[in-house]
Simulated assay, not measured.
Amino acid sequence: MSSKFFKANSKRKLKGIPSTEQLKRIRTEFPEIKVLKSGWDNFEIVVQIRPTAISELYDVKIIYTENKWVKIFVISKTLELAKNRTKLPHVYDSQKQQLCLYSPSKKEWNAHNYIIDTIIPWVSEWLYYYELWLPEGKWLGGGHNEYPNEDNTETLVNEE
């Protein structure tokens, strides 16, 4: 249909995967998810993730706003700190336990990626490396240099 008021545009591209489609795909793998909020362009859900067979089960809140961002929080428990650390590794906020899973500036994730194929596996991987980090406070999960003077001291002076 085309008129002077409405022009059909075959070149028009979706800005990303619709939130309804994201949620549908997550439900195929996690049918027991808790949906806290669901709108036409956003959702908040809680997914239970166990990174390994001997790991604890973690409740993880995923907040998605279509074409904008995904925020991830561990909500089931207060994550412990390694003995020689004063904050959690690779988080945006230690108190809120908001995980840092990718670098937005490096465009490692965008709204054209399915959360079930990227974010959720990354959460599991983050939790796996967190469990390895606990005994000695060494982050083995890669990413940016969380502890710049790692070689100089056991406890970080300017970690905050």
Rank of each mutant, 00 (worst) to 15 (best):
1 M>T: 04
3 S>Y: 11
5 F>T: 08
7 K>L: 05
7 K>T: 04
7 K>C: 04
9 N>A: 06
9 N>H: 07
12 R>P: 00
13 K>H: 07
14 L>S: 11
18 P>F: 02
27 R>L: 09
29 E>F: 12
30 F>D: 02
32 E>Q: 14
33 I>E: 13
34 K>T: 15
36 L>E: 15
39 G>W: 06
40 W>F: 06
42 N>M: 12
44 E>G: 01
45 I>L: 15
55 S>T: 12
58 Y>M: 02
60 V>M: 02
61 K>D: 00
65 T>M: 11
70 V>E: 14
71 K>R: 12
71 K>Y: 04
78 T>E: 15
79 L>Q: 09
83 K>I: 00
83 K>Y: 07
86 T>L: 05
86 T>E: 11
87 K>E: 08
89 P>H: 09
94 S>L: 03
94 S>D: 08
94 S>E: 01
100 C>Y: 08
103 S>M: 07
104 P>G: 03
105 S>A: 07
106 K>T: 06
106 K>E: 14
106 K>L: 11
110 N>L: 00
115 I>W: 06
118 T>V: 08
124 S>K: 15
128 Y>M: 13
130 Y>C: 07
131 E>H: 10
131 E>G: 10
133 W>S: 03
139 W>G: 05
141 G>M: 07
145 N>C: 06
145 N>T: 05
146 E>A: 03
148 P>M: 09
149 N>R: 14
150 E>C: 03
153 T>M: 13
155 T>M: 10
156 L>P: 14
156 L>M: 13
157 V>C: 05
159 E>H: 10
159 E>G: 09
159 E>D: 13
159 E>M: 08
